[in-house]
Every structure is written in structure tokens, then in C-alpha cells.
């Protein structure tokens, strides 16, 4: 009887420990935060989107990366920017177009002038079919669709970080950061290959196609 109780107790403890470990790991594991580069009173974020990360744990997942203060690419989607500051974002986009599920998100919103610069061309709306990803901060009303590279473009990137010598589009836009707080951002293109409606995996995971902007 005592042996049975001890065995049952041991199994229960192991199970409870496993559940606690999972919960704590989920709650306290987060991608690193990258601070925007400050120059001339403005903040600058440099990002890239890649069609497949190319490394463990999920080499075939689509992802964002960010450049740190030293110019190194870091696999993260947590950005720190100062409050009430002009933030200029440059995105090097290496993925091909998937298209928007909701064409409305082709509209550039919340940026300075309501526009973004696409390969040097200033636009307020991107053809929804040309979108590969979006950079959207719903709570700040910011949304910029990112055009994909041509399907037949030579020299396409297959693993992060992608160099500028490989096929990409360049998008720049600016916005005024709000007061201190944490604001979620996400991609609105269903770009998670192999997942239901393209919205699983990297679309549901911090550090890939979802992130946070920490305004300090």
C-alpha cells in the first residue's frame, strides 16, 4: 500500500513539475529586445523579413530579424524606441508575395504623411496582391504592407540573415512614437506555409511574425 502511494505521489509530482516548467518557460522566455539606433534626435529601426529562417529550431519558418546597435542581425521582434520621437523604419524584404487576405491592409496607415517609400517610390496604397508581409501596429493605427520580390527573381535568399546582394525590396516609413507603453505588432499576410489558413506557427509566435514595440 505504502509503495503504491509513493509511486502515485511521485508520478503526480513529476506531472505537476512538468506543467509548471512549461508554464514558467512560456511566461518568462522571450526574444531579446533590440533598441532603436538614435541619431539626430530620431530613432532608426532596421529590419529584414526572410522567407525561411534557415536555422534551428524552425528553419523553414518565415521570420523578421532586426539589426542591433553594432549592425548585427538578431532574430527578434521586440523593439525598444523612445517616447514621442520620430521613428524611421527600414525593412529589407526578401520573401515573395503571398497577398493579403484582407485587401484593406494594403492601405498605408499611421505613418508620417500616410505614405511609405517602396524601392524609392512613395505610395499610400500597395496592391494587396503584391504584399508579402505587413508591419502593423493595430493599437497605434500603423500599418504598412511590404511588397514581395518577383517569383522569378534570381539570387533569392534561403536562410537568414539575408545580405543586400540577394533579391529584396526596400521599404521605409516613419511614425511618431506614442507615450510609454508596450504595443503589439504583427504581420497580416497569412504567410505561415504549411499551417491552417497560413496563420499558424510563425504567425502565432513571438520572435517570428509577431512582436512588441516597447516605448520607453
Amino acid at each position: 500500500m505504502a509503495r503504491r502511494v509513493a509511486l502515485t505521489g511521485s508520478v503526480a509530482i513529476v506531472l505537476i513539475a512538468a506543467v509548471l516548467f512549461y508554464l514558467l518557460d512560456f511566461l518568462f522566455t522571450a526574444p531579446p529586445a533590440i533598441s532603436a539606433v538614435i541619431s539626430g534626435g530620431e530613432a532608426h529601426l532596421t529590419l529584414q523579413t526572410v522567407p525561411s529562417y534557415g536555422h534551428a529550431p524552425d528553419p523553414d519558418w518565415v521570420s523578421y530579424l532586426a539589426k542591433d546597435q553594432d549592425g548585427h542581425w538578431v532574430h527578434t521582434t521586440i523593439y525598444k524606441v523612445p517616447a514621442h520621437t520620430l521613428v524611421t523604419v527600414t525593412v529589407y524584404q526578401y520573401d515573395t508575395a503571398t497577398g493579403l487576405r484582407n485587401p484593406f491592409l494594403g492601405q498605408v496607415r499611421g505613418t508620417v504623411g500616410g505614405v511609405a517609400t517602396y524601392n524609392g517610390k512613395v505610395l499610400s496604397v500597395l496592391d494587396p496582391n503584391d504584399a508579402s508581409h505587413t508591419f502593423t501596429v493595430p493599437d497605434l493605427g500603423i500599418s504598412v504592407a511590404l511588397p514581395g520580390v518577383n517569383n522569378n527573381a534570381p539570387n533569392q535568399c534561403s536562410a537568414a540573415p539575408c545580405p543586400l546582394s540577394e533579391a529584396h525590396t526596400t521599404i521605409t516609413f516613419s511614425f511618431m512614437s506614442p507615450g510609454p507603453g508596450t504595443y503589439r505588432w504583427q504581420c497580416f499576410v497569412p504567410c505561415a506555409a504549411g499551417f491552417y489558413l497560413g496563420n499558424g506557427g510563425p504567425m502565432q509566435t513571438l520572435g517570428w511574425m509577431d512582436g512588441e514595440i516597447e516605448v520607453t
Binding site: 503571398t98 497577398g99 487576405r101 499576410v189 505561415a192 497560413g198
Partner: peptide, 8 residues
């Protein structure tokens, strides 16, 4: 029933 669903 929006397109595209290519990725999905």
C-alpha cells in the same frame, strides 16, 4: 472566401 490561401 478570400484569396490568396496559397501559403495555407
Amino acid at each position: 472566401y478570400p484569396v490568396p490561401l496559397r501559403r495555407g
